[in-house]
């Protein structure tokens, strides 16, 4: 199955190789890996999607947390969350075929971001299935997909789980006052299907 881990890591040279080395050592293939800045200075946020057995989630999360540059790890797979991926798709298009591509773009709530004589570029944001859906429809309607660039999955927990941000912003009373605040979730359950969060 696909596991999705969100890791907050120190923004330093070599951190990415430490993280990727861990997956290599476990012989786990990384499906996608997104790194960017987080809400905190000096901290990057990684979203790692990897193919591994259902029981491997705990061990991968725990091993990630063992890396000294990793501040927190969250196996978000089964949690309520928002998932997004950005894709740029270049499609062969002549003045004759453009109009039906525009229609498709409208239906998928995508945007045209570049138009040339022989092609156009579509920007699309959404979950993977939406992106794959547009590509499939384009191909089935005879439009040649010339190039695809995808960012890979980015994930954020819904609702009150954003307390990490609040904590970082030092909003009082939001973290410790809450019943069942996320510190409760730190107690590691040995249950392999359970939630695996470390740190924070």
């Amino acid at each position: 199955m696909l596991h999705t881990f969100v890791a907050l890591v120190e923004d330093k040279p070599g951190v990415l190789s430490r993280v990727s080395l861990l997956f290599r050592r476990l012989n786990v293939n990384i499906y996608s890996l997104v790194v960017g800045r987080s809400e905190r200075a000096g901290t990057s946020r990684m979203t790692i999607v990897a193919e591994a057995s259902a029981t491997a989630g705990h061990r991968i999360a725990a091993s990630l947390y063992k890396l000294e540059n990793v501040t927190s790890v969250d196996d978000v797979g089964a949690q309520a969350n928002v998932t997004r991926e950005l894709a740029l798709i270049k499609v062969a298009a002549t003045p004759q075929t453009r109009s039906h591509i525009f229609e498709l773009v409208e239906v998928f709530r995508a945007r045209i971001v570049d138009l040339a004589t022989e092609s156009l570029m579509i920007e699309l944001t959404g979950v993977e299935s939406k992106i794959e859906g547009l590509i499939q429809v384009l191909e089935e309607s005879g439009d040649q997909v010339l190039e695809v660039a995808r960012t890979g999955r980015m994930v954020m927990r819904r609702g009150r789980h954003g307390s990490r941000v609040l904590e970082a912003m030092r909003v009082p009373g939001m973290v410790n006052g809450e019943p069942g605040d996320e510190h409760e979730a730190e107690v590691l359950e040995p249950d392999v299907t359970g939630e695996h969060r470390f740190g924070e």
């Binding site: 725990a62 590691l188 040995p190 392999v192 470390f198």
Partner: peptide
């Protein structure tokens, strides 16, 4: 002391980390 050792080789009924 190391959470990544839990359930690595042998499944634990109770894990105390």
């Amino acid at each position: 002391i190391d959470p990544s050792e839990i359930n690595k080789n042998v499944r634990a009924d109770v894990a105390l980390i």
